[in-house]
Amino acid sequence: MAEKTINLHYTIDGNNFTTAGQASSNIKKVLKQLGVYPEAIRKAAISMYEGEINTIIHGKGGEANVAISPETITIVFTDNGPGISDIDKAMQEGFSTATDEARELGFGAGMGLPNMKKYSDSMTIESQVGKGTTVTMIIKLN
């Protein structure tokens, strides 16, 4: 387990599906090395992957900042995309505004945000239409 807080920063390329998963794979590796228990690693990896995909599909790219402390993993995604006009609707399973291209690749099932909420212990979304979205997820380690 991390003795003090470790901060990690990732840049996420917009519209590049081939690099999706790099940040989440890296987080998974770091958490394994720190000896974090498997269920927390799984929760962090899923939340992180969905965040990456959302940042690529909807956010037109952005960044992820992850802080790992002895008590929590805090994941913050920030993008400069179009923003979310109706957050409650976006949180509904099955609701999606993904493009046909994203759907053909197996995304756009409307499970991204619901999965992020399900696998993190708390999630908050701040979004301004036309400016962008910030999603903060916290996963408890004890």
Partner: peptide, 14 residues
Amino acid sequence: IQGNVNIAAVAALT
């Protein structure tokens, strides 16, 4: 049946 590159990412995580 999904054969695109993202299956590798999902498998690496799960």
